[in-house]
Simulated scan of single mutants.
Amino acid sequence: MKLVIIVGSVREGRFGPSVASWFAAQAGEHFDLDVLDLAEISLPSALPSNAMALRDVTGRPAEMRALAARLDAADAFVVVTPEYNHSFPASLKHLIDWHFTQWQAKPIGFVSYGGHGGGLRSVEQLRLVFAELHAATVRETVSFDRHWEKFGADGLLIDATGPNAAAKVLLDHLAWWAQALAEARAVRPYEAGAA
């Protein structure tokens, strides 16, 4: 199964790559990985006014078609997100809004980081966004409160015991959902709005 790990922050001095690197090391035992760092992706600033245009990627530039193909190939996603002003980064919302069918009937997990709340407010808001796109978010999350105290200057976790255990639970559930939904899509392709 293919897992796309999305690094959601593009801010200078961001912490997301350290968190994503740790999580990718855990996830490699469960999935084939594709790490998508939004700092390395260029999306047009304006979305098409016609929502149907978001469903058809054939007229997009080659770089955007390749990005859509990476998302299409995923059996599951994990979003690595900070919490900015009690929400998730605009760069992440922009990626989500540029794609529609790529998220449908696929499971999404979350790894968050932030201050005292550990980024959980951003996760709860992302659950609402992905529900609108017909994705299935898994209940389990990995959250790092006061993340700057949890990782050393080398970017490695100081004590990985708890986070590794939480990641295993998340990945086990994500793998179950990825397999179940892949089998369901193979039998009956998912159509948004279909009963």
Rank of each mutant, 00 (worst) to 15 (best):
S49M: 10
A69R: 10
G115E: 10
H134K: 11
T101K: 14
A39L: 08
S122F: 07
S122D: 14
F31E: 08
E83W: 04
N50C: 15
F130E: 04
T141E: 14
E83H: 09
S91K: 03
E63G: 07
E124S: 04
V79A: 02
R65L: 13
E140C: 09
I108G: 02
P82R: 12
P61C: 09
G118I: 04
A74H: 06
V142A: 09
H99P: 03
V129H: 05
A136P: 03
L33E: 04
A74S: 03
T141Y: 14
L54H: 05
S49Y: 03
R139K: 15
A131I: 00
V35F: 01
A46T: 07
D37Q: 07
H86F: 15
A136S: 14
R70T: 12
F31Q: 04
R70L: 02
E132R: 11
S122Q: 02
A69C: 02
D34W: 05
S49R: 09
A69F: 00
W103S: 01
P44R: 10
R65S: 11
L92T: 01
H99I: 04
A39T: 09
M64H: 14
L71S: 09
D97F: 00
A135Y: 11
V123A: 00
A90P: 12
V111A: 12
W98Q: 07
A105V: 10
V79H: 04
E124F: 08
H86Q: 14
Y84G: 14
W103C: 04
L43M: 08
Q104C: 14
V35S: 02
L71G: 00
V79R: 05
V79S: 02
D56W: 10
L36M: 14
N50T: 07
E29M: 06
E132P: 00
G119E: 04
V78E: 05
A73E: 05
P61N: 14
P107W: 04
A68F: 01
T141L: 13
I108S: 00
I108R: 02
I96L: 07
F77S: 07
L47Q: 06
I41A: 10
A73L: 03
R55F: 00
A136N: 12
A90G: 15
D75L: 03
H94E: 09
W98M: 01
S42W: 01
S112W: 04
A105D: 15
E40C: 07
E140Y: 13
S42C: 05
G118T: 06
S87N: 03
L126A: 11
R55M: 11
